[in-house]
Amino acid sequence: MAIMLLCICVGSVNIPLEDTVTALWNSLWKMEIPASISRSIILNVRLPRVLNVALVGAALSLCGAAMQGLLRNPLADGSTLGVSSGASLGAVLALALGITIPGTTYGGTMLMAMLFAFLSLAAILGLAYALDRSLSTNSIILIGVIFSMFSSSVINLVISFAEDHIKSITFWTMGSLSGTNFGHTRILSITVLLCGGVILRYARELNAFAIGEDNARHIGVNVRRVKLIILITVSVLIGVCVSISGTISFVGLVMPHMARMITGPNHKRLLPSSMFSGAIFLLLADLVARTILRPIELSIGVVTSLVGAVAFVTIFYRTRKAR
């Protein structure tokens, strides 16, 4: 909460904490907000953005934790399946071809990203199923990697033909939540609530998978069904996130590791703590992206990768040394 408040206060225009609290409090109880306070910046720009950042951070980190458990692979995250690259391809196509929905800034991009996320999911699962009916971990990872590479090359192809849009495409693919509004908050919160609920419900099964897929089968887990449910849920969540924020790397890969260092590998604690740490991390990253080169705004993805990589190595090194 404190970090969220800080993120609302600080930006290209700094707003005193007192004013922020007054504006939020008064609007919550539908009371008049004093004219001296920049109502529009607080309530229409910063608040939805901060909420969206927190939700995307929580979702990406949750997906990472679920995939690392399911595939028993510490290098997995929500993008391992390849759906996020598919969504990116959709968004890039929308930007390059100028597909828009009248009255919205990124409506067309978002819609195309979501559409492509679902198409990619269908294609990936179809391929995986055709290759190996048991949906083995190795086939899933392999197909995900191949599909991501394929999408990336098509994206590069599109970029080379769409020179006029390179800046907007680059900015979008690096990830940003600027310009998002309460409409996005609504979509994100419903998706996080539903998909997050499903993933949390399968915490025990994820523990079994993290111990080993054979072991999961021996203790009575319906391996194929659970795998399919988790993969689809993660893909939906990732698809929605990518369509709103672009691809933000690092959060889904690293935050679950940090959470695991604190709460241990048990998914009953790991999943909620990953969501929490993912949200906080992305809020701070967004704050840095907005303020470090004021008034220029960096892509949030650049910050997550730069700051996150250094922070992770430091923490990892210290933990290892302390042992």
Binding site: N215, I219, G220, P265
Partner: peptide, 19 residues
């Protein structure tokens, strides 16, 4: 038999009750 992450002995044994 191998385990990917640092679960406690008790947690691994407890999963035997999954069914």
């Amino acid at each position: 038999n191998s385990v990917g992450y640092g679960y406690s002995v008790e947690e691994v044994v407890g999963l035997g009750r999954y069914a």
